[in-house]
Design a protein around this nucleic acid. Structure first.
Length: 917
RNA sequence: GCUCGGAUGGUGGAAUGGUAGACACGCAAGACUUAAAAUCUUGUGGCCAUUAAGGCUGUGCGGGUUCAAGUCCCGCUCCGAGUACCA
């Protein structure tokens, strides 16, 4: 019998379905382990060979943990809301739900062929009402919560109303959009509407006015990457910066905890660093300034020490202060400037390094010297960070320097010996000068000293600023979760939790309405029972993916997002595998969302993902043929220099080991039917290059094809064998034969000349050594996500056992269990072949025995190296004297030392012997 | 600009500070075959030597620490990824 992988894989996949082998329950008799993949967006193109890389790794890990006695939760689902389905709907009129459903079906078929151990009974889809009910529920809870900075916790908004009516804002430290102060009397005297408006300033999910890329022609907000040079990429319509009332999530309130939490998780340093930069903590001070006409405003600075170098002030063009501070004669110039900057997207403003700005006409008073400082307006200051206003210190900030040079403003150096003739001196080092009470201090001493003085004089205070901004949560789109929100008297109110889910309504078209409202504006009866209009925006993509890992714990529960029972058992994700591209998106939102649910007591762990591994991208390996210009003649790679040629991408599926299948090429495209070839050694050799895997490069390799040709087990092993999991690497089908050969070699350990031949004899020493070397190595490698080297270990073991002609049951049995996570189908088949009646998935992971790994020769010479040294291994308890004696009598060393008369034998730790001649 | 990675044969890649190049691809030779494919065996960093045995050299570049460096430290070069008027 040959290794018939098609038959084997079909049979056991069916068996696993029939016996629900991978279904898990909250079995409290076993320790839990939660292994999660980032769920995919089911795109129309289906899976290519790069997608399953992380899934295979997590599947190996899950199966390994299971065989170690853990109760493993390993679920899968779909991030089903998304733009491509909606765009397809706009073009074809097909409902996005239908497109999504058929894409999911295709994904599932492809995934099933690879033999994953998912518990599909727990599948979730973000577009399923039973699922998004809980996305909407979390939103309602965020709406009805505020963030208390003192307690560092989200609290019910009802508690805040209570506090306001008792003490006003006195003594409260709250996360908000704008700081407010009022007394209890003032609060109690306010109208209901006014109170609601004020509460909006504190809600965790709030309606706020934020700057967005607005495209009037398309009637929608666009993301930065959908805009180029002031025009929409789709359609080429003008885009402007517009302040719009949008739903936002107060992620910034959690900045501190999001930052601190990074110390408690086991992620790579680079990913943590990316998040730290994104959260962007900076320590500094807020300082109060006052114009000569008495208008007060605040700035934020991290360099309070440079206060005596301030020569002007700058406001962001969007700042509220611009109107107030612009004087009559400057009004026209200022308005002109603001109109110009408005046209640019934020991204363009960032890209455009040229200096621009306009004088406001006002002057600020220096808080220490009383000097008059001109107030300018420039787009190099961002409204969204700090207070939207800065004190400019041109000598020690490169941006201020460029601005001062451009507009001929004074520059005062503050650090002894610094050269500011060509550029500013930005480094935080040196001795202060020109700075009154700070003179003579180092910069590091001067920063706190300056802030102390500022606080003492009451002209400012210490402040930690975060770069992290609140998340804009509205989209003017159809294919997303509807907000459980209606409007009454212009104010938003949430639906009752019992009214959830609020299902996505049908619309006639998936475009904005004629009056520019989002697509939901087309829905009939889109209002509450009382006739109040419902929210027309939908939620963004990250809404549904923010808490899906919690829902997997209890996916069919209709009463709560996750029961306390299930949550207290599964707790959080022990291992999360996915791409780095989510570092500042999903992985921030998800952590925020979980912390909020933690504050609510719904999630019992503060961090959702304990360990996170980023799998690398698999790139494509493209092949080229070379057409001689102006002909239909193609020349082989190494002869192409003799002609003038055009390289043309050729489908990698008709190329083998860079040799073109000429017949297939002629069939591939009618244009090449009559193609002629100039061959080398009778073959057409193709060129190659590493590029992104995409249809247009003809380098997409479909996992289905690999499974069909080599089997799922070969695909799994080969994807792991390609290289380190975390590294990006090109797919190259060329090496796959080696892995396939290995599996056949394993098969032939069991089957000799077609017949099963397994003996019950006691294993020999060498066989045990080979097996236990494998168990040790593979156990270690799986724990360290080094799957490529464990595949190598299997190959070495199989080669050794083959040459030992091993067919001992005891050896083969353990080998099969080790192989099961990697090649589950083959392992299952062989396991049954050995006479087991239960699945290999239930077999226990073997434990290695160091006894078998010991070397028996003593001393054991490994090698000679260079002129004066050789390496010997001794058991640790051997004394140096014994070693010295042994070195001199050992045949290998004698042979080497012979005639050279060693002067000295040096034995260093780890029992390395150096012989000095 | 800043941050984080990386640089090892023809290729993908192995090496708790201890035989550099495991394992695999490719290539070469051989066996089987009418032939090819498949399979199996052997060889395979470079240079020199070859009847042998062997020798020299070698992990991007330059230093350093160490009995011992691909690995640790300092200074460069190049490549990749992320991020960026964040005051």
């Amino acid at each position: 019998m040959d290794y018939n992988f098609r038959e084997i894989e079909r049979r056991w996949q069916q068996y696993w379905i029939d016996h629900q082998t991978y279904k898990v329950t909250e079995d409290r008799s076993k320790p839990k382990f939660y292994v999660l993949d980032m769920f995919p967006y089911p795109s129309g193109a289906g899976l290519h060979v790069g997608h399953p890389l992380g899934y295979i790794a997590s599947d190996i890990f899950s199966r390994y943990k299971r065989s170690q006695g853990f109760n493993v939760l390993h679920p899968m689902g779909y991030d089903a809301y998304g733009l491509p389905a909606e765009q397809y709907a706009i073009q074809t009129g097909q409902h996005p739900a239908i497109t999504t459903e058929s894409n999911i079906k295709r994904y599932r078929e492809q995934l099933d062929k690879i033999g994953f151990s998912y518990d599909w009974s727990r599948e979730v889809r973000t577009c399923d009402p039973g699922y998004y009910k809980w996305t909407q529920w979390a939103f309602i809870r965020m709406f009805h919560s505020y963030y208390c900075n003192q307690a560092q916790q989200a609290r019910p908004i009802a508690e805040l109303t209570e506090l306001f009516s008792r003490q006003g804002t006195r003594g409260l430290d709250l996360a908000c959009n704008e700081p407010m102060e009022f007394t209890a009397e003032a609060w109690n005297a306010m109208s209901e509407k006014k109170q609601q408006e004020i509460l909006m300033n504190y809600r965790i999910a709030y309606l706020g006015d934020t700057m967005v890329n607005w495209c009037p022609e398309l009637g929608t907000v666009l993301a930065n990457d959908e805009v180029s040079e002031g025009f929409s990429i789709r359609g080429g319509y003008p885009v402007e910066q517009k302040k719009m009332r949008q739903w936002c999530l107060r992620v910034s309130a959690y900045a501190h905890r999001l930052l601190d939490g990074l110390d408690k998780v086991d992620w790579t340093d680079s990913l943590k660093e990316t998040q730290r930069n994104w959260i962007g903590r900076s320590e500094g001070a807020v300082m109060h300034f006052r114009t000569s006409r008495g208008i007060a405003f605040d700035i934020f600075t991290t360099r309070a020490d440079t206060i005596f170098g301030v020569t002007f002030m700058v406001l962001a063009p969007e700042s509220e202060l611009v109107k107030e501070l612009t004087t009559g004669e400057q009004r026209e110039a200022v308005e002109d400037y603001i109109a110009k900057t408005k046209k640019k997207t934020e991204r363009e403003r960032m890209a455009d390094k040229s200096v621009s700005g306009v004088f406001s006409g006002s002057y600020a008073c220096h808080p220490f010297t009383g000097e008059q400082l001109p107030i300018w307006i420039s787009d190099y200051v961002l409204a969204g960070y700090g207070t939207g206003a800065i004190m400019a210190v041109p000598a020690h900030d490169s941006r201020d320097y460029a601005f001062a040079r451009h507009f001929n403003l004074p520059i005062i150096p503050l650090i002894e010996g610094c050269d500011i003739s060509e550029e500013s001196f930005d480094a935080k080092e040196g001795i202060m000068m020109n700075s009154d009470f700070l003179n003579g201090m180092t910069v590091k001493e001067a920063i706190p000293a300056a802030i102390d003085e500022v606080e003492k004089r009451g002209i400012g205070y210490r402040k930690i600023n975060f770069r992290l901004r609140d998340a804009i949560f509205s989209r003017q789109r159809y294919w997303g979760e509807p907000f459980p929100v209606y409007y009454k008297d212009g104010m938003p109110y949430t639906l009752e939790e019992s009214q959830l889910p609020l299902e996505l309504p049908e619309v006639d078209k998936y475009l904005p309405t004629e009056s520019g409202e989002p697509p939901l504006g087309r829905a009939a009866n889109w209002h509450t029972g009382e006739g109040y209009p419902l929210e027309l925006n939908t939620m963004p993509g990250f809404a549904g993916s923010s808490a899906y890992y919690l829902r997997y714990m209890d996916p069919r529960n209709d009463n709560t997002l996750v029961s306390e029972d299930a949550n207290s058992y599964w707790r959080n994700v022990d291992l999360y595998i996915g791409g780095t591209e989510h570092a500042t998106g999903h992985l921030v939102y998800s952590r925020f969302w979980n912390k909020f649910l933690f504050d609510l007591g719904v999630s019992c762990e503060e961090e959702p993902f304990k360990k996170l591994v980023n799998q690398g991208m698999i790139q494509g390996r493209s092949n080229f043929v070379y057409r001689i210009k102006g002909t239909n003649k193609f020349v082989s790679l190494n002869l192409k220099e003799q002609y003038e040629v055009t390289p043309i991408h050729v489908d990698v599926n008709i190329v083998h080991h860079d040799i073109l299948d000429i017949e297939a090429f002629r069939q591939w495209n009618p244009e090449y039917k009559t193609a002629e070839f100039i061959l080398e050694d009778g073959k057409y050799v193709c060129g190659w290059a590493i590029e992104k895997m995409s249809k247009s490069m003809f380098n997409v390799v479909n996992p289905d094809d690999i499974v069909e040709k080599y089997g799922a087990d070969t695909l799994r092993l080969y994807e792991m064998f390609l290289g380190p999991l975390e590294q990006s690497k090109p797919w190259d089908t060329n090496g796959i034969d080696g892995v396939h050969r290995f599996l056949r070699r394993v098969w032939s350990l069991f089957y000799k000349e077609g017949d099963l031949s397994v003996s019950d004899e006691e294993p020999a020493k060498e066989e045990l050594k080979s097996l236990h070397k494998l168990i040790k190595k593979v156990s270690f490698d799986i724990e360290h996500f080094s799957f490529n080297t464990s595949v190598s270990a299997f190959m070495i073991c199989a080669n050794e056992l083959t040459s030992l002609k091993c067919s001992k049951r005891a050896i083969l049995s353990d080998l099969t269990v080790c192989l099961a996570p990697f090649a589950p189908h083959l392992a299952e088949e062989l396991w049954r072949t050995l006479g087991n009646s239960t699945s290999v998935c239930d077999a226990r992971w073997p434990v290695w025995n160091e006894e078998y790994l010991k070397e028996d020769a003593f001393p054991y010479a490994i090698s000679f190296n260079g002129k004066s040294r050789f390496v010997l291994e001794f058991p640790a308890d051997v004394t140096n004297e014994e070693i010295e004696k042994a070195v001199l009598v050992h045949p290998n060393s004698q042979k080497w030392i012979e005639g050279k008369n060693p002067k000295k034998i040096i034995i260093v730790p780890k029992k390395i012997v150096n012989v000095v001649i």
